[in-house]
C-alpha cells in the first residue's frame, strides 16, 4: 500500500544549528504514528518541514503518490489534505471560535462543504457551539485544544499532524484529547503525532519513533518501544 507520507534522510538547520539531523519515516493510510522525544529533540521541526514552514537542508518528503512537498508552498501543501494541530494550540486569539473554524477550511473552494463541516464540528463539540461567537483567546486550555483539533478537521484532511496535543492540559482533559485522537484515527485519518506524554501516546499509537537530538534512534510498535528500559526511564518516570 502506498504510504501517505514518506520522509527520507531529513536534515534541518536553523542557521548553523542543526535541529534535525537524520529522520526517515513513513505512515501508511489509516495509521497513527507517534514521534516521542524530549524538549529540543527536533519533533516540532519535523512537522514544520512537512508543512513547508521550514526549508530542510537535505532529504526528501513525499506525499501519497510521490508529490514532492519540498517544492510546494505551505498553502499548497495544505491543499493536498494535510492539516496541523500546532503546539500550544496557536489559535487566532482575537478571532471568534466560528472564525477560527471557518479559516480551517479557507483553502477549500467548496464553501458549502466547509460550512457543513463547521456545523458538524459545532455539534460534535457542544461547548464550542455554545461559545462560537466568543473570541478564542478567552477559552480555557481544554476548549482551545478542541478548537485547534476542530479547526484542523474542517479541512477534511487525509493526514493530520499533531504537535503535543496534551501540552499544558489538566490530566482529565489530556485523557479526553487522546480519546478524541483515537476517534479521529478510527475515522480513517492518518495521524503523525509528536509527544512527550509517552504514557498516553503509547496507548493510541500503532508505531512509535524515538527522536534524540535530531536523530531517530529507535522505532517499533508501541508495545516494543514501551517495554524498553531507556523509554521507561526517560519518558515514563521509571515505570510503565
Amino acid at each position: 500500500m502506498t504510504p501517505v507520507l514518506t520522509i527520507r534522510s531529513l536534515a534541518v538547520s536553523y542557521g548553523s544549528v542543526p535541529a534535525v539531523r537524520n529522520v526517515s519515516l513513513e505512515i501508511a493510510p489509516g495509521e497513527l504514528r507517534v514521534i516521542l522525544g524530549a524538549n529540543g529533540a527536533g519533533k516540532t521541526t519535523v512537522l514544520k518541514a512537512i508543512l513547508g514552514l521550514v526549508r530542510p537542508r537535505s532529504g526528501e518528503i513525499r506525499f501519497r503518490d510521490g508529490t514532492d512537498l519540498l517544492r510546494l508552498k505551505p498553502h499548497e501543501i495544505h491543499g493536498l489534505g494535510i492539516a496541523w494541530v500546532p503546539e500550544g494550540r496557536q489559535l487566532w486569539n482575537t478571532l471568534t471560535v466560528l472564525d477560527n473554524l471557518k479559516l480551517g477550511g479557507f483553502g477549500d473552494r467548496d464553501k458549502r462543504a466547509v460550512d457543513r463541516r463547521v456545523g458538524e464540528m459545532l455539534e460534535r463539540f457542544p461547548r464550542l457551539g455554545e461559545r462560537r461567537h466568543q473570541v478564542a483567546g478567552s477559552l480555557s486550555g481544554g476548549e482551545q485544544q478542541m478548537v485547534a483539533i476542530a479547526r484542523a478537521l474542517v479541512s477534511a484532511p487525509g493526514l493530520l499532524l499533531m504537535d503535543e496535543p496534551s501540552l499544558g492540559l489538566a490530566p482529565l482533559v489530556v485523557r479526553e484529547v487522546f480519546r478524541l485522537v483515537r476517534e479521529i484515527n478510527e475515522m480513517g485519518i492518518s495521524i503523525l503525532m509528536v509527544e512527550q506524554n509517552a504514557n498516553q501516546a503509547l496507548k493510541v499509537a500503532h508505531w512509535v519513533y524515538l527522536l534524540e537530538t535530531g536523530n531517530i534512534v529507535e522505532s517499533g510498535s508501541a508495545a516494543t518501544i514501551g517495554a524498553k528500559e531507556s523509554v521507561k526511564d526517560v519518558f515514563l518516570g521509571g515505570h510503565a
Partner: peptide, 20 residues
C-alpha cells in the same frame, strides 16, 4: 478573516491554506 489571521499568526495561516 485571512488578513486578520496573517496579522496574528502568519505561519499558522499559511499552514491552513492562506496564500500569504
Amino acid at each position: 478573516r485571512a488578513t486578520r489571521a496573517i496579522a496574528e499568526r502568519p505561519d499558522v495561516a499559511a499552514a491552513f491554506g492562506v496564500n500569504v
